[in-house]
């Protein structure tokens, strides 16, 4: 098991890991300090509609005359918030269910895995759309929907590592000397799941952000006036030619965000799980 510090050190050594780390850090800074960095309120109609990028409006203005630069910053907030919370939901539920399924096996395992198979039987975007159709739109429901969709991957990842950890000698030993179930799980088994779990979480973050953008693009995710890159893009579609900046900046930020999370996820995997290193 590698300590956190060592993981970090190895990550920084890898050029891709550095790019990923710095990128994610920058993104988080942008999101956290959005109110300080933004020039205007993201909802305020401050100018004539569809002004081209200029000194005052760095990324131009949209069809309502709102500052796109400020909206992009607040959009980063929305993306990260949806990503973190939905992955948080999926990861915590997935972790608990995965530990239970993997440790106890038997009937409870079969039931949990059957439910996961059912959730897995849908293309993820379809399931997310389907769930928001029931819950209604808006930021909270989007998070819940994306969270539910992502549960099965976590359950599978955690379950698989729990099962392999159970076979490890020291776990067997601990069990035979009578360590109770809960401490056994927490102290000896859970640490083994951390590596694949972290890699999975980073990758799930990028797919959650992507799903949010897709859903908002279809009009099913974040609702106005909350700025979301996906809904900014879908709004911009009608003005592609007159105001290409309305299209280009949201696309740029969606792609870069997903890209840096993927880069970070890849190098994390290389560091934590050298078996897969290529």
């Amino acid at each position: 098991m590698k300590g956190l510090r060592q993981v970090f050190r190895e990550l920084v050594k890898d050029p891709m890991g550095r790019i990923g780390l710095i990128g994610v850090l920058l993104l988080i800074l942008l999101a956290v300090f959005a109110p300080l960095l933004a020039h205007y309120s993201p909802e305020k109609m401050v100018s004539m509609p569809k002004a081209a990028p200029n000194q005052q409006f760095w990324f131009g203005t949209d069809n309502y005359g709102r500052d796109i630069y400020s909206r992009i910053l607040y959009g980063a907030r929305v993306s990260l918030e949806v990503g973190l919370i939905s992955v948080g939901i999926a990861a915590s539920i997935g972790f608990i269910l995965g530990i239970i399924a993997g440790y106890f096996e038997g009937r409870i395992d079969r039931i949990i895995m059957c439910i996961m198979d059912i959730l897995f039987a849908f293309p993820s975007i379809l399931l997310a759309i389907f769930i928001t159709a029931v819950l209604g739109r808006g930021i909270e429901n989007t998070m819940i929907a994306i969270g539910i969709v992502n549960i099965p991957v976590f359950v599978r990842t955690v379950r698989a590592s729990v099962i392999s950890a159970k076979g490890l000698e020291y776990v067997q030993n601990a069990k035979s000397i009578g360590v109770k179930t809960f401490p056994l799980l927490m102290r000896h088994i859970a640490p083994n799941t951390i590596a694949p779990f972290t890699v999975q979480a980073t990758l799930a973050l990028s797919s959650a952000i992507l799903t949010e953008a897709s859903m908002s693009f279809l009009g099913l995710g974040i609702q106005p006036p909350d700025p979301s890159w996906g809904s900014m893009l879908s709004e911009a579609r009608a003005f592609m030619e007159q105001a290409p900046w309305m299209v280009i900046f949201p696309i740029l930020f969606i792609v870069i965000t997903i890209l840096i999370f993927n880069i970070l996820g890849d190098s994390l995997r290389d560091v934590l799980d050298p078996k897969l290193k290529t």
Binding site: E43, K44, N63, Q223, A238
Partner: peptide, 28 residues
Amino acid sequence: GLLDAIRQSAVVLQQQLAEIYIDLDIVN
């Protein structure tokens, strides 16, 4: 609703009414 004119008018009204202590919560 989803019609552009309705959807966009709601967004503008939301801004205008904010001036007179009214917060509109829009659902399309």
